[in-house]
């Protein structure tokens, strides 16, 4: 078991024939991901990486039965691509592209929600179920199969965390990079309960950052619903005060979103909070030892 995706997930790539799309689709195929085709307008009918190319997501879904889309289109077209996927019946869109305008993401996410499509990202490394399905740009070789679920805002901290877990002799069920943009798809609040329900996941690593209050919301949810041990790190304890011009942002979120505030909330929810990402591995080992007792 795993969450979100597995070896049977049928995946298409939007922005399939572009440079990034091609490079990473190749890597995903090599990892074993069941990529069944791709979408690039005006290249329909061609074959790319031995897979069919379609003009529209509709066509791709009807022909291949794909349920997941990996999105690599340029930033200005991300909103459009997400909404097209939602209307075509895609169930999960993983948006890798960095630099999508925030306004576009507001519209796109609202539309995705309306059509019952989940989204991950944008500006994220993607999602990987170890040794089954990689949808994104993470280096696949780090992710060995095991019993630790991982969720992170930061791409490279996802790799750092997974690498430490594996070096300690454990492995990963599924790792999800949710991205740190102002508007993101699935977040801690939705993914933590998925790990809780997944019988293979025994321990959860959660990596957050300063800014916003998603980690505070996560802390409240962990207290109520999560029985599995959670190890957390919040990046940015030493970050300088944000250079903002107005004050409106801080007031809206109702909190300054500091690392200290988030760490305290998580600790109060029973989470093991480490002060450096270098300590994630050791903390997981401790948590796993407690479970086996």
């Amino acid at each position: 078991m795993s969450i979100l995706v597995n070896k049977d997930s049928k995946v298409i790539v939007q922005g399939f024939t572009g440079k990034e799309g091609t490079f990473h689709a190749e890597q995903c195929l090599a990892y074993g991901t069941k990529i069944v085709g791709g979408v690039t307008p005006n290249k329909g009918g061609q074959v790319h990486l031995d897979k069919p190319v379609f003009n529209t997501v509709d066509e791709a879904v009807q022909t291949t039965g794909a349920t997941v889309s990996m999105i690599f289109v340029p930033p200005a077209f991300v909103g459009d691509a997400v909404m097209e996927a939602a209307e075509a019946g895609i169930e999960l869109a993983v948006i890798i592209t960095e630099g999508a305008p925030v306004k576009d993401m507001q519209m796109a996410k609202a539309h995705a929600t309306k059509h019952g499509m989940m989204t991950i990202g944008p500006n994220c490394p993607g999602v990987i179920t170890a040794e089954e399905c990689k949808i994104g740009i993470m280096p696949g070789m780090i992710f060995k199969k095991g019993n630790v679920g991982l969720i992170s805002k930061s791409g490279t901290l996802t790799y750092e965390g997974a690498n430490q877990v594996v070096k300690e002799g454990f492995g990963i069920t599924t790792a999800v990079g949710i991205g740190g943009d102002p508007i993101i798809g699935l977040s801690y609040k939705q993914i933590l309960p998925m790990f809780e329900a997944d019988p293979e996941t025994e321990c959860i690593v959660m990596i957050g950052e300063i800014g916003g209050d998603l980690e505070i919301q996560a802390a409240a949810l962990i207290k109520e619903q999560i029985t599995k041990p959670v190890v957390a790190f919040i990046a940015g304890q030493t970050a300088p005060k944000g250079k903002t011009m107005g004050h409106a942002g801080a007031i809206v979120s109702g909190s300054a979103g500091t690392a200290a505030e988030k760490m305290a909330a998580l600790e109060a929810a029973g989470v093991t909070v480490v002060v450096s990402p270098a300590e994630i591995g050791a903390a997981v080992t401790k948590a796993m030892a407690k479970i086996s007792k």
Binding site: K153, E160, G236, S276
Partner: peptide, 14 residues
């Protein structure tokens, strides 16, 4: 990566 960059600063500080 911004996250690892902040995490590195935090580690140095720690």
């Amino acid at each position: 990566g911004a996250g690892l960059a902040m995490g590195t600063m935090d580690t140095i500080n720690h």
